[in-house]
Nucleic acid binder design. Sequence first.
RNA 1: GCCGAGGUGGCGGAACCGGUAGACGCGAAGGUCUCAAAAACCUUUGCCCUUGCGGGCGUGAGGGUUCGAGUCCCUCCCUCGGCACCA
Length: 829
Amino acid sequence: MSVPGDKAYDPSSLERRWQARWERDRTNSFSLEELRTARRPYFNLMMFPYPSAEGLHVGNIYAFTGADVHGRFKRLQGYDVFEPIGFDAFGIHSENFALKTGKHPSRLIPANIVNFQRQLRRIGGMFDWDHTVDTTDPEYYRWTQWLFLQFFRRGLAEKKGAPVNWCPSCMTVLANEQVIVGECERCGTGVEQRFIHQWFLKITDYAERLLRNLERIDWSDSTLKAQANWIGRSEGAQLRFPVYRPRAPGLIVEVFTTRPDTVFGATYVVLAPEHPLVDDIATDDRRAEVEAYRERTRAMDLVARRKIEKDKTGVFTGGFCVNPATGDRVPVWIADYVLMGYGTGAIMAVPGHDERDFDFATAHGLPITRVVAAAGEDADTPLAKAYEYPVGVLVNSGIYDGLEVDPGRDAIVTDLCKVRLARRRVTYRLHDWCISRQRYWGPPIPIVHCEECGPVAVPEEELPVLLPEVEDFRPDRSGVSPLARVRDWYEVPCPECDGEARRETDVSDVFLDSAWYFLRYPSTDFDDRPFDREITRRWLPVDMYIGGNEHAVLHLLYSRFVVMALKDMGLLDFEEPYDRFRAHGLIIREGAKMSKSKGNVIIPDPIIERYGADTFRLYLMFLGPFAEGGDYQDQGISGPHGFLHRLWESVVPEEGELSAEEADEGVERKLHQTIKRVTEQLAELRYNTAIAAMMEYLNAVRAGGRRPRRAEVEPLVCMVAPFAPHIAEELWRRLGHDESIFEGANWPAFDPARCVKNDARIAVQVNGRVRGTVLAPVGADRDEVMARARAEANVARHLEGTYVRRIVHIPDRLLNFVVVRAAGVGRAR
RNA sequence: GCCGAGGUGGCGGAACCGGUAGACGCGAAGGUCUCAAAAACCUUUGCCCUUGCGGGCGUGAGGGUUCGAGUCCCUCCCUCGGCACCA
C-alpha cells in the first residue's frame, strides 16, 4: 500500500485508500459467527441520526467522532468493539420536509440515507455497515409493531380518551414531552387542547423503578437529574373533602397535597374546570357562570393556560365542602390554575402557605389563615405573602398546635387515616406515553377494530402491516390520520370473528422506533426474530452510549421503560439498556450559536476536502472538553493540521531513514508520562487535554530540531490513531507492520517507574510568595531542600533580617518559609 | 421561580487531593529561508513598573478560613442549558 519514494502527506488520497481497504478487509464488520463468539465484546453505541436532506451537520460529526474515538480506543486496548450506526428516518420531521418540497418521503429518505452513508464513511468512523438499521424499512418496523403487540397483550397499551396537545400547524397530537412552554417543539406553534382517543403505553406503572434505578447506572450527572425531575415524584396524602349537601350526602372531593400539615389552613377547595364533579357541585344559580368559565378554558390553548404570570381566574361553584380537619364549610371554586392531569385534579387551597393559593385568595377575597409560625412569629402574625417553608410550629390547628411541621404532618395524616379521611399517597409528574400520531410517515399501529371483538391485535405472522404508498399524505384538521382516507387499506376482516372491521389508522410515535433500535443492531442477520437471545446476552446491555442531552428525558426514558417491560415479559435478561451514558456538549462558532438563519453553519465537506478527515476529527476533539462542547474558530484548525504534518514528517523524514537507536532517556520518560496521561484522559473522554499532551510530547521529541527515533514515535502513532485513524494506519504500515493498527491490541503500555523524574523542581516561597525554585532529588527531605533553598540568591535576600517561625514542606513541590521581620520579633512578644 | 453547568490572557481552553495560575492551540510581534509571497522553522507574548536583576497586580464582585485559595465556606452579580401554576 505504501508507495516508496512518496514522502509527502496527502490526506485526501491516503484517507480514500484506507477507507477502501477497511471496506475490503471487513476491518470493522462482524460476521454472524464473530458476533456469536467475540471474546471481549464491547457495544459502543451512539445516537443514530435522522437523515435530513441537508446532510450531516457538524453537531452530528462532533458526536459521532467523539463516540468513534472511544470505540477505537477500546479496540486498541483489545476489545471486540461493535460500533453500528443507523437511520431514524420516520417521523414528522421527514414528513414536514416532504410536504414542503412536494417529494414523497418514501423516495426522499433513501436518497438522504445514501448521502449520509457517503458522509459517514468519509469521516472515518469505525462503523459496521453490515449491521445497520433503517426504521422505515418494513423489515425493521415489523418488529416495532411486534413490540407494540407485546405491550398490548400484557395490558401495557391501552386506548383511552384524553385531553391531548394538538398542534394546529403540524395537525397532530404531541406528547407532553414535545410541548415546550406551550408550543410545538417542532414548529413553535401554540398548542391547543383536544379530546381524542389515543393509544397510551403505561410508563407510569414503572415510574418508581425508573426513578430508583437511576441510582445504579453510570450516566452523566446532568442526565440523571433531568430524568429524576421529569419523573417528578412527590410524597404526600390524598385527603377527602366531603361535599356539603345535607339533602344528598355521599359526594366526596379527593385532593392531593404534599402539605397535609396545613390542612387547618385550607379555606377553600379548587377543582380543575374539567373535573367530573363540577356539574354535581355547581348550584343552579351559579351554573351559567360555571359553564361559561369551563367553555372559556376549553377554547383556550395550553399556551395561554400555562402562562404563570397571568392573573389567577376562576369562579365560585356555589357549592361547599367540609374541611375534614376543622369541620368548617369551605367554598368550592373552579380555576384553570388547577390542572386535571396532575394528582386528582382538585386541591385544598391553603392561601397562607402556598403562593398560588395566596394570589387567588387575594384576587377573590377568600379568607387567609396562618397555620404555621416560623421563629419569632405566632398565630396572629399577619401574612404579607404565603409562608411556604415547611419549617416552624403549627398554630390555629386545634389539638396539633405547637407541634413542629414534620411530626405535626405525621400526626394529622395518621389521625385522618383512622377515620378514613386520608391516605398516604405518592404522585408522579410523569404521564403515560401517548404513542398515537394522526400522521402518515410512521409504522401503522397493528390493531384492527371490530364492532364485536373490540381492538384486536394483528396476528404476528401477518406483520408487518405495511404502510400503504399514497400520494396524498397530507394531514387534515379533522384530527384523523391520512390513512383513514385509504378505504381499501383499512377495510379488513376481523382476525378473530372474521366480521367487518377496520384497521387502526394512526401510526406510532418516532420515539417508539428508537426505543429499541440498539436491540436490533447485533441481530440484523435474523429475519425471524427481533433480537436473538444468545447474541443479545453477549452484547447487551450497551457498554457505552454517547449522545446529546436533548434526549435526556424522552428517548432515554422511553428506551429504559421498554427494556424494563421486556425484561418483565421474560424476553430480556437485563432491565437497564445502557450501562454507561455520556452526554456530549454542543459546538458553537466564534462565540455564537450556529443557525441556518445566521448563515454561520459549518459545512463539513469543504473542510474535509481541504484538510482531511483526520485533521477535522482531531480539531473537533481539541476544541474543548467533549462533555461541554467548544467554540469552533475557523483559524484554529491549522494547529491540529500542523501537528499531523509534524507527526508525519517525524515518522517519514524527508531525508534519510528513521533512526533505530533506543529512545533518548529524557524523551523516554516524557513518553511514559504521556502514555499515562493520554490513557487516563481518553478513558474519561477528556479528549482535548489528551491531544494537548500528545502535542507537548511531539514538541519534546522534536525540540531544538532533534531527529526523532523510531521508539519515540511509534507509540505516538498508536495514541493518535483513535483521533486520526487514516494517517495512523499509513504510518503504522510505513513502520513496517502488515496488519491494520486496529487489529491486535496495540495500545502502548506505560511503566510507572519510568514516569518519575530523578529531580524535582521545587518552588520556594517566603510568606506564600514564590521567590525562586530549586532542583532537588525526588523525595529529598526538608532539611536538604531547605539547604538548597537558602543557597538561592533571591530566596536568601528575602530571608535576610527575618526570623523563621515555621516551615511548610510539600515533598517535591514546595517549600514555604513563614517569617517575621527580626526587628519585629521583640516587639511582638 | 426551581434544577443543572459555567464565569481564568486578545481568543479557544489547562491546572491532581488547597501547593510555581495560564499547559496545549489560535492570534499577534520579531527573526531564519526566499527576488517576493505562501508554507515551514526559531524566539517572544497575562497586565503594570524596571536598562537589567527584580518588584507589584492578577482566575465575575465582596467577605472569610489557611503558612498558602482558580480550587474550601458565606453573600451577591452575570451567562448558558433544562423544567415550569405539578398542589
